[in-house]
Design a protein around this nucleic acid. Sequence first.
DNA 1: GGTGTACTACTCGGATATCTACTGTCCGAGTGACTAGGG
DNA 2: CCCTAGTCACTCGGACAGTAGATATCCGAGTAGTACACC
Lengths: 160, 160
Amino acid sequence: MRMNEGVEWAVHSCLNLAWLGEDRAVPAAKLAAFYELPAAYLNKQLQALARAGIVTSTPGPRGGFRLARPPEEITLMDVVAAIEGPDEAFRCTEIRHRGGSGSGSRSETPCAIHTSMRKAELAWRRELASQSIADIAATVDDHSPAAAERVRRWFGDTRT
Amino acid sequence: MRMNEGVEWAVHSCLNLAWLGEDRAVPAAKLAAFYELPAAYLNKQLQALARAGIVTSTPGPRGGFRLARPPEEITLMDVVAAIEGPDEAFRCTEIRHRGGSGSGSRSETPCAIHTSMRKAELAWRRELASQSIADIAATVDDHSPAAAERVRRWFGDTRT
DNA sequence: GGTGTACTACTCGGATATCTACTGTCCGAGTGACTAGGG
DNA sequence: CCCTAGTCACTCGGACAGTAGATATCCGAGTAGTACACC
């Protein structure tokens, strides 16, 4: 089981967008250059965020991405769901109804394994939903206060 | 993000082994036939369980797999870790230290995103570790009491 | 009849193909800004 | 000096390859049971 690498990129980009404010749009190429990521592929992830309503995109010159709502209202769960899709990690294929096992009583009782797995996954989702982009930004500001300013300076100065 | 299908097979097989008792070994081919699964591939998953010390394997005629310890002491976390491996789903690649971002202060503060993700994943693992094979067996016995007996009969009768 | 030995069938275990989906790249559609010309 | 039309560069958006990991399969090593020959 492995999470898409795009999730890491997306969260970092959301953090940067949060620091840069909502009044300016940042092109995907610039967000990618900040971390030396492949620009076109990061763009793909940002598109997913846009479809999920987490960021808004504006085309043309001076265009780019910006957060669609305040960072307090964007949770890690939102970002993960946008990139990974709605499906849960464990997918019950109902093998208990195949072969010699299910012959006869095709009961409609829920699969106990599926239930247990879902319970664990819900705990995971709940924890993700409890943490917002603003929370993470606050943690970073606490540990290294210069980070936000460095981001603002870098995105303000370079004209790549 | 998608969990290996082998996890589902492995948990079902552990359940069956629990119902069949520790005093008899069941070949992988028979466990596979019960659900019409590819035998060689299920065997691969059972090997992973054996390496993790969840089941013991005995070769030769009358050989097969059996639980290495009572089902009360086998948790879902054990099985998932055996199949999926020890790595966590979210892997921080430390992109924050690449490119224009990290130039200058390569701080040793922990990555806040990584910390948050790990927190969620720990909640998931904790929930998995709290449920044992015996718990699931009890749930199934509660919902459809005939299941255990049907398993014992099927594995006892057929001589495939 | 008892015992030792060779044989056979059965099982796991790991090495080897195939296939899905994640990763990465490219080009076109659309939009806003800028420039130049006219009033 | 102000307004308008045309051009251009920039950006997103989706369509198109490449690749790692999961899925599926096959064959060899080892073992226990069995049959047979010998004592």
